[in-house]
Design a binder for these strands. Sequence first.
RNA 1: GGGCCGCUAGCUCAGUUGGCAGAGCAUCUGACUUUUAAUCAGAGGGUCGGGGGUUCAAUCCCCCCGCGGCUCACCA
Length: 488
Amino acid sequence: MAIEENEFISNRLEKLAGIREMGIAPYPAHTPDRLPVENLRSIGETEEVLCTSGRIMAKRKHGKTVFCDITDQTGRIQLFINKKNLDEVGWELLGKLDLGDVILVSGTLFITRTGELSVRVETLLLLAKAVRPMPVVKTDADGEMHDSVSAPDFIYRHRCIDLMLNLDSKNRFIARSRIISAVRGYLDSENFLEVETPVLQQIYGGAAADPFVSHYNSMDEECYLRIATELYLKRLVAGGIHRVYEIGKDFRNEGVDRTHSPEFTQLELYEAWTDYNGMMTRFEDIVQAAAKAAGVGPVAKFGGHEIDLAPPFKRVPFIPALHEKSGEYLFDWDAERLSGLATRLGLGNDIRDKPALLDKLFDHYVTPSLIQPSFVVDYPVELSPLAKQKADNPRITERFEAFIAGLELANAFSEQNDPIYQREVLEKQAAQSKHRSGVVDEEFLYALEVGMPPSGGLGIGIDRLVMVLTDAMSIRDTILFPHLRREQ
RNA sequence: GGGCCGCUAGCUCAGUUGGCAGAGCAUCUGACUUUUAAUCAGAGGGUCGGGGGUUCAAUCCCCCCGCGGCUCACCA
């Protein structure tokens, strides 16, 4: 299929043909040594002939002088191209260059009358001709952007354009990469071992979510994309890898919104000889490391809030907080009464069981107030099938969820390691839940039966962490290629 | 899946109480040897998301569909 034609593309294709007719290869195989644009800036004025390359972002023609701005990953620099400094071929080539073309230039560096460091171009080489035009962004004297690309679907579908033109977006993805790197660095320095567990699973578990279903032809069996790594990582703890983590994609076949993506990146770590208190410290440490990597100070700005990231984070007990915010002792209400309240609040009327109702009501009453980093602790046991109960109160578990800016960022608990209790819970759950077809993960239970040391486990939504640290209002802005419906 | 909003030139967006489709930037032609949102003169560029309906006439009103955003539901 030929590329879609329009005035702009055919225009450029003609120039491309013209360049070929000149005997110039428009996509040469390799380039001579070049300096990053940033290096030229730090060198400043010089009579030495230097070489750099980049994409043409602006072109200002003045007869026999042409000014171009080119950019590479390190920055922008102006080219001063004068007919008298260039050979005839170079000058003819210049006439066939457009915004977006990738070029290589060499020349000396000088400062123009208006005070801008510029390359006095002596040789000009084309490295890649752009046949598709890209939007032009201009910044006026007040620093205001004109014609920036803002349509969300355009940005998500053509991320290459977004990265070229929207500095905020580019910086966000750089920050994301550095955050993940810093998290790894922290965990590695604490002697955690990074592992990889199956993405393609015959039994999925570790969370309550609908999976993506696939089919393995040669085995002729149904399989699933993982929804969590939990049940595999705990087998490793039982096996003696006492500090272990995985950073990877989980897949949940559920609705998409500002804070949910069908494939998202999760860190799960498990650590023996500690409990959920240890996980709070780990979470605080990881947030510190990530914030530092993202260049965020002790106070992060997010959606107009100022968020103080300095530890220790606030502890908010689940049940007392719910009682305080709702003004009612909801934990003592029965399911019917809770359901009535939920319905009146417009929270949906199809929820029947009490724990789910409490969770829903907590979301309504308490979560929006959790702007500053907070650990919601001591969840009702029914909401936490894989967590250990408190020694002095079996109705609640040693579990926390971490919230920042009203976003749930992490979930952690003292891991349940009683194989008899765990089997009961999982079998009951498998029988009731729409998410399981009556199947429990026997290999996971086998590991608990062999014996797993007391451990803490922590899962962190990396995309949401990036949201908080880069002031992104949608999870899609933190994912390079978010899932979109197919274009018709 | 429900509700609301949006879709107009390559990009950002006006607009029409239903009557020849608009601007800035970008593109093309010309002028210009230190400009920087360069400037000046001229030109081209549209299935007004798609389909159907109402009407003398639809980009505009109605219906269906597509895509997107927000929101609700779902979601440990």
